Amino acid sequence: MQLDLNVILTGIAAPIAVLLVKTLLDFSISHYLVKWFSWIPVRGFFRDHPNDLSGMWDQRWNAAGSPNFQDDLDRHGHAIIKQFGRYCYAEFAAKGRQYRLFGKIRGNYLMGEWYDVKDKNAYFGVFELRIVSGEAMDGLYLGHSTRTSNVGQDTWKWTKC
């Protein structure tokens, strides 16, 4: 009986690669992995079929009493969600600032964190969005700011374009 070394190495390399990617997603480098590798179809690797949220979204949030975002246009924008398995990444702008969103799909919810790209401690928080369908999400966000010690919270609605 002969052993085919190529078959053995291929059989070992694939599960190791999947475990490596899964482990890296648990560290802060995961934001960049999802951003750069969202084009790779991984749904079959993890035997997981989360909702497909990738694509262009229209998103609008309420101001939570913030004097900086009083105008409705300041709280409205577009974001492209990039998805890698259960992990989602998006960037959006508000009043000339770039914000980043990173989350994980758990059941019918997308939960995670958002923050100012240039200064992660300036304005940041967490969110929980209920996935109503592949075309709509709605939920809440919590926000921290260097302007005040109060924690703000309000609604956040997403509609697929």
Score class of each variant (00 low, 15 high):
V117A: 10
F27H: 07
T10A: 13
S66A: 03
M1H: 03
P67R: 06
D4A: 10
S54R: 12
A93Y: 02
S38K: 07
M1S: 11
K118D: 12
G96Q: 06
H78V: 09
F46E: 01
K35G: 04
W158N: 12
I105M: 09
F92E: 09
V151R: 07
D119P: 04
Q153W: 11
I40T: 09
S149L: 12
N108M: 04
A17M: 12
G44A: 05
I80N: 05
A17W: 04
W61E: 00
L129S: 01
K22R: 15
H31M: 06
M1C: 09
L3C: 03
F102N: 00
G112S: 08
V42L: 06
W61V: 00
W39H: 14
K104N: 03
V126D: 08
R100C: 07
Y141H: 02
L3W: 08
K157T: 14
F46S: 02
V21E: 04
C161E: 12
V34M: 07
V7N: 07
S38Q: 12
R106Q: 15
F124A: 05
T148R: 12
A63E: 08
I81H: 02
G112A: 06
A63Y: 04
A63K: 10
R60N: 05
F37S: 13
Y32E: 14
Q2L: 13
